[in-house]
Amino acid sequence: MSANPKLRRILTVLGTACFWLLVWYLIAVLVNQNVLIPTPWAVLCTMGTLVTKPLFWQSVGLTLLRVCIGFAAALAVGVLLAALTTRFSLLHTLFSPVLHIIRAAPVASFIIITLVWIVYDLVPAFISFLMVLPIVWINVSEGIRQTDTQLLEMASLFRLSKAKQIRRIYLPSVKPFFLTAAVNGLSFAWKSAVAAEVICRPDFSIGRQLQEAKLYMETPQVFAWTAVVVILSLVLERVLLRLTATARSKKGGAVHD
């Protein structure tokens, strides 16, 4: 007899989670030092306390805002840069080294450098933008390059405007690449924004709370804030996956234009 696949998936996820919680619990009991590794229960209690404070929601809200601003800006600028650099080879030559530097240099270097240049409050959003930008740029460029030249040739034979070619051929061709970049970029946006917050310590930020918890040796709080980051990241990723699944399944638009 085969169980319902959805139920089986839920049970698998729950089983795996329980296994690792048990491993964590056993290690915490063996170490027996709350400051080194708190038990899952202690972390859960800390989280329970945190969510009752306005500071928690202010920190989560503003971190989320910084991530969203950086992420959205990276999507917009990444698409624009991809369009320009695939169209003009000179721009591609000029911008390629920048892309390589962003990808190769450690994120901490960028955080420290930008901290010198711009207001510390803006650094997390900027770092988030900077880390997601190459992902969007590379993926969308690849999508543009892989656009079917036979379709473009057909469109030019039938004398279709460039605007119509972009709307009807380029955009649908690039869409899967863009969506993949968005899904992959989101986790980068999170991780880099929180890392920047830890170093810049802007008011009302998850990074600042993490750093302060570490300073006061409040290890359960460090774990609790980390758990919050992981949960939020997963939730956002699920929402984006749901949105992209809807976008992927959508076919073309109006019949006559």
Partner: peptide, 19 residues
Amino acid sequence: RLLPWLSAEENVAFVCGDS
């Protein structure tokens, strides 16, 4: 050379605005 994301009718209408 059909656009896979357009229906048969949309593919034809793609080059001709006259329904």
